[in-house]
């Protein structure tokens, strides 16, 4: 492995200036569960690894109606927090199934986002919870919706010298529910053939859909926000039949490939099934009887 400097940053300025100094020869280290594997596999070489876990903003986890998840907060801290689990069920579904317990001790949702694989379990739930990312670089700080962050397999909106600081999720509306499910051939420790996250807000009667958001994993070059299926659901009655129609629309928004994990045909089918199932689960949670 190419030798690199270890830079334990204690604040954002230090980290950003290290990133600016080394350009694309430096990366941020959070949990390391992707980074160290990729370095060891010599997928790329680095001259510097900037450890971000001593930067207060990157390890912040604050629930104040909305939720702020620092980019380096490990998954277990998110799913072991019962108040977060109650308010942000879609996030918990993902945080508790990424890898095994050992991985969840270190891996972060921010790292999952920055690694930017189309199959990431963590990204779609952040999209349907209307997550917004905060990015800082030498030229200042900017924000963007999570669905705009990934730009291709392993690629994202971070420019040279920029780093992800946090993911901010707004306070869910009343009668809100969300869920994430994936299809894998075994029960744990696998990469999604297809993953679907759905979020739904019902009206006060609990029968009509006010708004919905659906996002698809592993069926395109990036996680996909299924805009048409999401918009179709607004104003509809919350029945399984409606959700099956939403699944059929979502399937048309998927652009999967055939690979070792599944075929194009299977993946389109799985989008339909998982969209319907996650909507049913999200509605159960929205009605408070999950």
């Amino acid at each position: 492995m190419h030798p690199y400097q270890y830079i334990p940053a204690t604040n954002i300025t230090e980290a950003v200036s290290a990133l600016a100094r080394y350009g694309n020869r430096a990366r941020i280290l959070a949990g390391g569960t992707d980074l160290l594997v990729q370095l060891r596999g010599e997928r790329y070489e680095l001259d510097a690894v900037v450890d971000a876990k001593a930067i207060p903003e990157l390890v912040e986890l604050t629930l104040d109606g909305g939720l702020t998840i620092g980019a380096a907060v490990p998954c277990y801290q998110v799913y072991e927090n019962l108040a977060i689990a109650a308010a942000f069920p879609g996030i918990i579904d993902a945080a508790s199934l990424i890898g095994g317990i050992q991985i969840q001790s270190r891996a972060s949702l921010g790292g999952n986002l920055c690694n930017s694989t189309p199959s990431a379990d963590g990204i779609c739930p952040l999209i349907v919870h209307s997550g917004v990312v905060t990015i800082t670089g030498v030229d200042g700080t900017r924000t963007m919706p999570v669905e705009e962050f990934s730009t291709g397999p392993g690629r994202n909106a971070l420019g040279n010298g920029e780093m992800l600081i946090s993911i901010n999720l707004p306070k869910p509306a009343a009668h809100f529910g969300a869920a994430y499910q994936r299809f894998i051939p075994r029960n744990e420790m696998d990469i999604a053939v297809v993953g679907v996250a759905s979020a739904i807000t019902l009206d006060a009667t609990g029968q009509k859909v006010e708004s919905a958001r659906i996002a698809l994993a592993s069926v395109g070059p990036t996680p996909i926000f299924a805009k048409q299926a999401s918009e179709f659901l607004a104003g509809q009655t919350a029945t399984e039949e409606t959700f099956a129609k939403a699944g059929a629309i979502a399937s048309t928004e998927a652009t999967p490939i055939s690979d070792m994990r599944g075929t194009i045909k299977q993946r389109h089918h799985l989008v339909e099934v998982l969209t319907r199932r996650t909507l049913v689960q999200a509605v159960r949670r929205a009605r408070g009887n999950a």
Binding site: Y6, P8, L29, G31, G32, T33, L36, V37, R40, G41, V49, D51, K53, Y76, G99, G100, I101, Q102, I103, S105, R106, M189
Partner: peptide
Amino acid sequence: NDGNCGACTVNVDGRIVDSCLMLGVE
């Protein structure tokens, strides 16, 4: 040596981790 098998599991501050996916300097 890539975080799949858990043979290298150690306990760090009360949490189990794969020691192949943690740097010694950490």
